[in-house]
């Protein structure tokens, strides 16, 4: 269980996060949606324990949590297998064993033919799969994902989302995924949490009961439309252009 208790954060002169309460149960996938620049990434970094919150508490009793970043963050000087095995190396797993475990994961994620390639020789989608494999390799039971697919083009994004759903449900891993794309949140989450523009506050929460496999495109658009009919959600997504214009 990961629990954020009235977490707030102020950076410099501006408040970024304001009184967030959030719980993630084992095996549960929660998607945080909000407009760009609303403090989602900061919230994720607080949840990851990368920095202490200015206010409130973060309680994490998951066995191991890891993160998938927006831009892969692979080591350019390490081959694919070594990149996947990085977390295992940090745990002190001997080289032979960590490479064979990395190889199994690489095969599972469809990277089997590129084992000795360097990151710059891989497509964006493959790099992101390597990042995912690296996070899975350490047997995490909580994945924190920061807009992991936003740099991919449409076809690859859909493929990567399907892969993620499959991996999460088969392994029973909990996930906290940050995105600015409502349909992505609706496709990947058991629960969708909508944040306001900066400072981030929770303005709406929706439980999606439909199984992942049955969430087709029609469902996603209908659900997104239904969500946007809530005034608070609409304010986050549709009517913030004026505010942005004033702010800038």
């Amino acid at each position: 269980m990961l629990r954020l208790e009235s977490v707030g954060h102020v950076l410099g002169m501006s408040r970024i996060i304001d009184g967030i309460d959030l719980e993630i149960a084992p095996g549960e996938s929660v998607c945080l949606v909000g407009p760009s620049g609303c403090g989602k990434t900061t919230l994720l970094r607080l949840a990851a324990g990368l920095m202490p919150p200015g206010e409130g508490r973060v309680l994490d009793d998951f066995h191991r949590s890891t993160m998938v970043f927006q831009e892969g963050r692979l080591l350019p000087w390490r081959r694919l297998l070594d990149n996947i095995a990085l977390g295992l190396k940090a745990l002190g797993v001997p080289r032979g064993e960590r490479l064979s475990r990395a190889r199994v994961l690489a095969e599972e994620l469809g990277l089997g033919e590129r084992l000795d390639h360097f990151p710059h020789e891989l497509s964006g989608g493959m790099q992101q799969r390597v990042a995912l494999a690296r996070a899975l390799a350490v047997d995490a039971d909580l994945l924190l994902l920061d807009e992991p697919f936003s740099a991919l083009d449409v076809g690859m994004r859909s493929e990567a989302q399907a892969l993620l759903i499959d991996l999460l449900s088969r392994r029973g891993i909990a996930a906290l995924l940050v995105t600015h794309d409502l349909t992505e949140a609706l496709r990947l989450g058991h629960r969708v949490v909508v944040l306001s523009p900066s400072p981030a506050r929770i303005v709406h929460e929706e439980r999606i009961s439909r199984p992942f496999a049955e969430r087709d495109t029609a469902f996603l658009y209908e659900a997104a439309a239904a969500l946007l009919r809530h005034p608070a959600v609409a304010r986050s997504f549709l009517f913030h252009q004026d505010e942005e214009a004033v702010a800038s």
């Binding site: 890891t66 963050r73 080591l75 990085l86 977390g87 190396k89 745990l91």
Partner: peptide
């Protein structure tokens, strides 16, 4: 950003130096 990644994966200090800092500086 790589340093932050190293923190997430809990790389020990020596490994952080050998795997992240050194190759970058050599380049």
């Amino acid at each position: 950003r790589l340093q932050e990644m190293a923190e997430v994966f809990r790389l020990p200090p020596l490994m952080r130096f050998m795997d992240i800092t050194l190759p970058h500086i050599v380049s």
